[in-house]
Computed example of a mutant assay.
Amino acid sequence: MHIPPYHKKKSVQRFLAGTFAGAVIAYLLFVYMHGSMYSHLLEENRDLKSEVTELRNQNEALLEDNENLGEKSKEPIKVETIDITITNEEDLSDSLIIHDLEELIREEITHIVGKNVSIISESDDLLKATIEGKDFTVDDFTYQFTVETLVIHQTVKIAVEADISN
């Protein structure tokens, strides 16, 4: 039995070359789409993890406060949440780094949740010094922050500017 020599025909050679080129392009397209999808899912995962951590801390502080509510019902307003905004996000290389930095700052000052607003407002300079005085390291880069805005109420809103230190 003899196999016909189709590989010598130009039309078959073009078909095989086109099939190979199409397979390479399809593979590259698949790798690109998979990478972008994975990046998006990773960012969403970090957002959700930071939200869960924040809600756990808030829940613990509020449960602790609720236990003491009966005897301290006439106390002033307490801090419930912390909202951190980095003003120069466009200068940072990746949105994942932004979430990590916000989470590190939040962990540094999470002790103020559940405290009286009057106590926190009296020590606002200490709160600023806590943030500005510490270096935060993410992905082998060290960041320092300058507090631009600090609003103290039930939600403590902090706007900071990030600088990469050497």
Score class of each variant (00 low, 15 high):
Gln144Trp: 07
Ala162Met: 00
Thr155Trp: 02
Ser93Phe: 04
Phe141Lys: 12
His153Tyr: 09
Met33Thr: 12
Asn45Thr: 08
His99Val: 12
Leu16Glu: 10
Gln13Pro: 06
Glu80Met: 07
Asp94Tyr: 07
Ser50Leu: 05
His111Ile: 07
Asp47Phe: 10
Leu42Glu: 15
Leu92His: 01
Leu69Lys: 12
Pro5Arg: 06
Val12Pro: 03
Val52Ile: 12
Arg106Trp: 02
Ala61Gln: 02
Glu64Asp: 13
Ser165Ile: 11
Asn59Gln: 10
Lys134Leu: 07
Gly114Asp: 09
Lys128Asn: 03
Met37Glu: 11
Lys134Gly: 04
Lys157Gln: 09
Ile119Trp: 04
Val113Lys: 13
Ser118Phe: 10
Asp91Ser: 11
Ile82Tyr: 03
Lys8Ile: 11
Ile86Tyr: 03
Ile97Phe: 01
Thr149Ile: 06
Ser50Met: 07
Met37Phe: 12
Leu48Asn: 14
Ala61Gly: 10
Val160Cys: 01
Ala17His: 09
Glu161Val: 06
Thr155Ile: 14
Lys74Gln: 09
Glu43Arg: 05
Leu62Gln: 15
His153Asp: 15
Lys115Arg: 14
Leu69Ile: 14
Pro5Val: 00
Glu148Gly: 01
Glu122Tyr: 10
Val138Pro: 03
Leu48Glu: 13
Pro4His: 01
Ala162Trp: 04
Lys72Gly: 06
Val31Phe: 07
Ile86Asn: 02
Ser118Gly: 08
Ser121Cys: 04
Lys74Ile: 00
Leu69Trp: 14
Pro4Cys: 00
Asn116Glu: 15
His7Trp: 14
Ile164Pro: 03
Thr85Phe: 01
Asp163Leu: 08
Ile164Ser: 04
Gly114Cys: 05
Leu62Phe: 15
Thr19Lys: 13
Gly35Leu: 08
Ile77Gln: 14
Pro5Ile: 06
Leu48Phe: 06
Leu48Gln: 14
Glu64Ser: 14
Glu132Ser: 06
Val138Met: 01
Asp65Trp: 11
Gly18Pro: 00
Leu150Thr: 02
Lys115His: 10
Glu67Trp: 10
Gln13His: 03
Glu64Gly: 15
Glu122Asn: 15
Gln13Glu: 11
Leu92Cys: 02
Ser165Met: 07
His99Gln: 15
Glu108Cys: 01
Ile3Phe: 06
Glu89Leu: 08
Gly35Val: 01
Ser50Phe: 04
Ile84Cys: 06
Leu104Gln: 10
Phe145Thr: 08
Thr146Asp: 08
Val12Gln: 05
Phe30Cys: 07
Glu107Arg: 06
Ile97Asp: 02
Tyr27Val: 07
Gln154Pro: 01
Leu42Ser: 15
His40Cys: 01
Val113Asp: 08
Leu55Trp: 02
Asn166Met: 06
Ile97Pro: 02
Gly114Ser: 02
Val31Asn: 12
Ser118Gln: 13
Lys74Gly: 13
Leu96Tyr: 05
Pro76Cys: 00
Asp124Val: 02
Leu104Arg: 03
Ile98Met: 04
Glu80Trp: 00
Phe141Pro: 05
Ser121Lys: 14
Glu103Ile: 00
Leu55Gln: 12
Ala21Met: 11
Gln58His: 03
Lys78His: 13
Ile86Ser: 01
Asp163Ile: 09
Met1His: 07
Thr137His: 04
Asp91Gln: 11
Leu29Gly: 11
Asp139Met: 01
Glu161Trp: 05
Leu92Gln: 00
Ile120Cys: 08
Ala17Asp: 10
Ser165Trp: 02
Leu48Ile: 10
Thr130Lys: 12
Asp100Met: 04
Glu103Asn: 14
